[in-house]
């Protein structure tokens, strides 16, 4: 249950940063850790993540299931499952979101930073008309009457091709097809014209044709100048949409690269493995399996046990190392 904000175990006092000179960075995640202490082991869903999202860019976060993408995404909205412990900072417009009160966080959510949830089928209230839910972020802003919101929803539905808009807005989510539901979630995310949208797996379980329509919807969002963080399994979708790619593994960022360079020559052995597992590159799977879920990972490089080039140095965890231009990688090969 996402109800109670969890007990923050802060590393130190709240840090308000002077962001002079780095005005183009809209969200900065610093040493963020979200851990779940279970009876057997602590699941380190997010473990020391550093990440800077630039204004107006589209950032794709890729990584296999359980690597902590969703936990990271919801953390940026200040939403945490109960029972977790949080440390680090998430800075948005000079404020650490983790230091804000629930009240202050609410004024960020939906209006400044919007969320497009994973799993559209369960992400909408089954007993509320879809149009109302899509327009809900607006209802919190002054001057938005019911009629005005409804008009805006119809515009959004037309724009994201949830057709026919009037009929669709009156319908309940269960009568929607998967692609249409996902597009109305995009409409919902954009409805209050936020600065940042975080989209979680927008193409999961969607066929090729619908995927194209979702990509179009996201291009539309990007063209409005909205900063996009797209969490995805789908490398093709990332290639189509992103400016930069972040690779997550077992709760940590292994690589941050420019999109072109990433698909041309990935830095991390894990990234290379991911690209090799694409169908056009021969569907070669990465041997072994990720260890975050059972808490088996303890120290050193997280990818060590599966890495073809692992050496002695890898017993120590590498830091994020700048390898080329602004691209960074967590691997000793680039030291």
């Amino acid at each position: 249950m996402y109800y109670n904000i969890c007990n923050y175990h802060k590393t130190g006092p709240c840090r308000y940063r002077d962001r002079k000179g780095t005005m183009s960075i809209i969200i900065e995640v610093n040493q963020l850790s979200v851990h779940f202490p279970l009876s057997t082991a602590t699941v380190k869903a997010v473990d020391g993540v550093d990440l800077a999202v630039e204004e107006r860019e589209t950032l794709a976060i890729i990584g296999e299931s359980g690597s902590g993408k969703s936990v990271l995404g919801t953390a940026i909205l200040g939403l945490f499952p109960p029972t977790c412990t949080v440390s680090g900072t998430i800075t948005y417009e000079g404020k650490d979101l983790l230091c804000l009160s629930e009240e202050q966080l609410r004024s960020v959510r939906g209006l400044q930073i919007a969320w497009i949830p994973q799993n559209p089928a369960s992400a909408l209230n089954p007993s509320m008309r879809t149009g109302l839910q899509v327009g809900e972020p607006l209802s919190r802003q002054a001057g938005w009457t019911r009629e005005r919101i409804h008009e805006r929803v119809l515009e959004l539905f037309a724009k994201f091709r949830v057709l026919p808009p009037e009929e669709r807005s009156q319908a309940y989510p269960d009568s929607y097809s998967g692609g249409m539901l996902q597009r109305s979630l995009v409409a919902m995310g954009t409805s209050a014209s936020p600065k940042v949208i975080i989209a979680d797996e927008p193409t999961k379980g969607v066929d090729t044709l619908n995927k194209e329509s979702i990509a179009t919807a996201f291009r539309e969002v990007r063209n409005q100048g909205i900063t996009l963080v797209v969490i995805t399994h789908d490398l093709d979708f990332a290639r189509e949409l992103a400016d930069r790619v972040v690779v997550m593994y077992n709760g940590a960022v292994l690589e941050i690269s420019d999109k072109e360079r990433f698909f041309e020559r990935p830095l991390h052995p894990y990234s290379a493995g991911l690209l090799r597992s694409l169908p056009e590159n021969g569907l070669v799977p990465i041997p072994g399996r990720a260890t975050a879920r059972d808490g088996a990972f303890t120290s050193g490089c997280r990818f060590r046990s599966r890495c073809p080039g692992a050496g002695e140095r890898c017993a120590e965890e590498p830091p994020l190392i700048r390898a080329r231009h602004d691209d960074a990688v967590r691997c000793w090969n680039y030291d």
Binding site: M1, T74, L79, R109, G110, W115, A123, N125, E136, R140
Partner: peptide
């Protein structure tokens, strides 16, 4: 309690309600 754990409640929270 069951409903409050559903995904759509998280969605509602993400909208700042």
């Amino acid at each position: 309690l069951d409903v409050l754990e559903q995904n759509y409640i998280l969605t509602a929270r993400s909208k700042g309600l």
